[in-house]
């Protein structure tokens, strides 16, 4: 016997809707371990072609399909419908970002904040002809940082990010820290003042929502603490 779940999706099309509304769909669970992205494609391809959302790689690395499912930010392509433990599912766009259409949010500000922290190697010493040597221990420091997929699940779960429009947010700090502790980088003098701003790392209230939300199990709060410590060490 086939099994169905109800999926309620927050819909909004600025061309015709004055305000957002919930629309309900019945979705068939067609295989054990069926993923939420397959459920959304089922709706789009078989029931309602007007539903809009982002997706691309379908395997949790491109970061396109971050959305709020039953109150938690996650990737649709890596979430099993059954694991939600309910047959009534509510999907909303990522919170704290302007909604463009249905589950599609405007990430321009999110990307700009990422770029603000100078997310690239800054180096003044000359480069050798060969690779810059980096010990396995120094390389290991980058684990848990470089794996970020820029899905926005962290920043859009952060109350400080919702409240302070200038706040750089956990994603930008995670990337800043990835470069600050890279043994090849010499950009701390340029990067730290940006992070020391009143909209920088001090605005984090260690709520840990970002850690909860990250689908790659990364820890932006730890990165923020690392940056704070680096700022303090430099001051005293």
């Amino acid at each position: 016997m086939s099994k169905f779940v109800t999926i309620e999706i927050l819909r909004y099309d600025p061309d015709k809707d004055k305000e957002a509304y919930y629309q309900s769909y019945k979705v068939e669970i067609r295989r054990p371990g069926m993923l939420m992205l397959a459920a959304l494609n089922q709706i789009k391809w078989e029931q309602d072609p007007t539903l809009s959302f982002r997706r691309s790689c379908r395997e949790g690395v491109c970061g396109s399909d971050g959305m709020n499912i039953n109150g938690v930010n996650m990737l649709a392509c890596m979430t099993k419908v059954e694991d939600l433990g309910t047959d009534h599912i509510v999907i909303q766009p990522l919170p704290g970002m302007p909604v463009m259409r249905d589950l599609v949010v405007d990430i321009t500000d999110f990307i700009n904040k990422f770029i603000t922290v100078k997310p690239y190697i800054i180096r003044h010493s000359p480069m050798p002809d060969k690779e810059l040597y980096q010990s396995p221990e120094d390389r290991k420091l980058l684990d848990g940082l470089y794996e970020c997929i820029l899905c926005g699940c962290c920043s859009s779960s952060c109350p400080s990010y919702w409240y302070d429009k200038e706040y750089l947010g956990p994603n930008a700090f995670l990337r800043a820290w990835r470069y600050l502790i890279d043994s090849r980088d010499e950009g701390a003098d340029e990067r730290l003042p940006i992070l020391n701003d009143k909209h920088g790392v001090w605005r984090c209230h260690t709520i840990y929502n970002c850690v909860e939300a990250c689908p790659k199990e990364l820890n932006p709060t730890k990165a923020i603490v690392g940056i704070r410590k680096m700022l303090m060490d430099r001051k005293f």
């Binding site: 099309d13 061309d15 015709k16 309602d48 072609p49 007007t50 809009s52 463009m100 259409r101 249905d102």
Partner: peptide, 10 residues
């Protein structure tokens, strides 16, 4: 089916 100008994935 979708006739919207905004993020028309259809």
């Amino acid at each position: 089916v979708d006739k919207s100008t905004v993020y028309n994935l259809d």
